[in-house]
Structure formats: structure tokens, C-alpha cells
Amino acid sequence: MTNNSNNAQVTGKTSIKTYRDAINDAIREEMRRDPTVIVLGEEVSGGAGCDGEDDAYGGVFGVTKGLMPEFGRERVIDTPISEAAIIGAAAGAANNGLRPIAELMFFDFIGVSFDQIFNQAAKFRYMFGGKSKTPMVIRGTVGGGWRAGAQHSSMLHSIVTHIAGLKVVMPSNAYDAKGLMVQAIRDDDPVIFLEHKVMYDNECEVPDEQYAIPFGEAAFPRQGKDVTIVAISNMVTHAIAAADLLAQEGISCDVIDPRTVSPMDDEAILESVEVTGRLVVVDEGNPRCGLASDIAGIVAEKGFHSLRAPIRTVTAPHTPVPFAPELEDAYLPNVDKVLAAVREVLGA
């Protein structure tokens, strides 16, 4: 996989890195730079209190592997299975001088901790008249494809995007994952950082040095003039694949990856639609009150006169994520569904 981000300003030495390792790099370097950065969550190291090896997991997907041996259990904290307490501790610590990175092993577990996120962390600054800051990152894995069933496969990004006070970051490749994680840690607001679990082994060229990618700046992995395709997280992979196939037929797609959905780079989307007049939005979330309908709504409201065809969205259906492979495959958006939507807006 190549670097999909044309905003990349790569200088100095680079290495081919996985999405997983890019996030690990970002956290490690920030922890070296800033002693107030801590990591906490279930098995972020693993093996606490056990007789076997230390650092047995490094997070269930291995993203935080190696941090505990370098920074110790004081800064890489294995917690009990207590999501409300994990998020609450992170939010409280963030108000008192630390920059915590809290992990929700599967983002589906926000349900257990949700009050601490949306009633507490998200609202502190506003309720307290701007007198507090909550520099915390909540990492969570999202998305289907692992046959993990309804309670371990949800997206749920639309729910947190709905909440004022939170920032929501959804990197689609290793380069963006590193730069956005650095920004998330340095950011003074609560940031929800969503990692799609099927992308952990995806590789691209990543600078060795630390760099921060500002929030609210889209990336443009493919440029074109016929159709705008907005996609997020793992859906960017499908959008690029579709764009490359369509390019062979002489159809040129402008693929936009917002990278952060709160704040979101509305301008980039509107400017693109001004040229193409056609919009397809690809989102793995459920369709109702979802990000795809939100983006469609923004364009319908602010870019209506640019549109030359109805907007099409490609989303999961309005069901929980099914377990059986045939059903999950049918549930998930894929390249064929993107191709069909593009052809439809082109009237082809």
C-alpha cells in the first residue's frame, strides 16, 4: 500500500511501517518527549500480576507493545476491566496535569463508559466557562471484517461525532495514523482516535521523525474531475480501488479522505463538488443519522447549486453487524458497491 495522503511533506528518513507500528511510534516518541503522557487500559501491556511473561499482549492488537518495558508500569497502566473507571480516570487526570491515552479495547465498549465521555469529558470546558482543559486521547478499534459479531464490530463514530466537545479522528493509513496520533496527544481537547481493526497490518512509507497532522485538513489520495468520492477510515481503501478501476474507463474520481470527522474539512468537499457536480459518500456506519447522511446534508445545504445529480451514499444497512461471514460480507460496503454508486451518479 502506498501513501494515500498527498498532503505528505516527507523530509528526512522514512521507513515502511504498518498502521499498528506507526501508532506505536507516535505514542512512544511523545512519551519520551513529554513525561506527562501516560497510557492506560485493559492489557495495554498485559500479564499484570501473572506468573508468566510481562508485556504479554501490548494491547489485544499489539499496538502498545513495548511501551511498558521502556516506560514502566507507572506510565503504562494495566487496569481492571472497568471501562467507566478507565475513561473517568483519564478525564480527571487530564484536568490535573497529565495527558492520558486511554484505550477502549473495542470501541463497542464505549457503552459501558459513555457517561464519562459525553457528559463529563466532552462538556467540562464549556460548563466551566473555558477554565479547564481535558487533553486526553481515547483510542478504540472499530469496524467489521473479523467475524467478531454484533458487540465487537461496530463503527459508532457518528455517535461521538454528534457530541460537541469531542474531536474525532479516523486515520485510513499508517502515515496519517502517526501524524494524527501525535496531534491527538498534543491537542488540549478530548480526542476520540478510532483505529479500524482490519488495517493494522496495512503498510506505507512513514517518516521516522515526529510530525503532527492538523485536524480538519482532508487528504486527497486521488484527484479527478468527474465524481467526488468522500470516504473515511477503511472505506478509503475501497474508494481508491474503485477510483483506480474507473480511471481505466476514463472516469476520473476525486477521492477525499477527511481524516478527522470532527472537525471536518467541509471546504475541501464543497470545493471538489463544485468541480465534479457529483458526490458519493462511503461510510461503514449505519445509515440513519450517520456520517454519510451528515456529509450529504452539508453538500445539499451548501453546495446544492453545484450538484448535477442526486447524492449517493454507500453505507452498511440499518442492522447490527451480523456474525455469519456471508452476512457480514453483505453488510460491509465494498468496491463493487462504490462502483455501482459512482455509475449511478454518472447516469452510466
Partner: peptide, 12 residues
Amino acid sequence: YAEGTAANYGLG
């Protein structure tokens, strides 16, 4: 064991 964490660690 709570997953891969000892019960005698997780239970205070």
C-alpha cells in the same frame, strides 16, 4: 484471569 490479567491484580 481476566483475559490476560491476573485476578489477584485486578481485584483490589
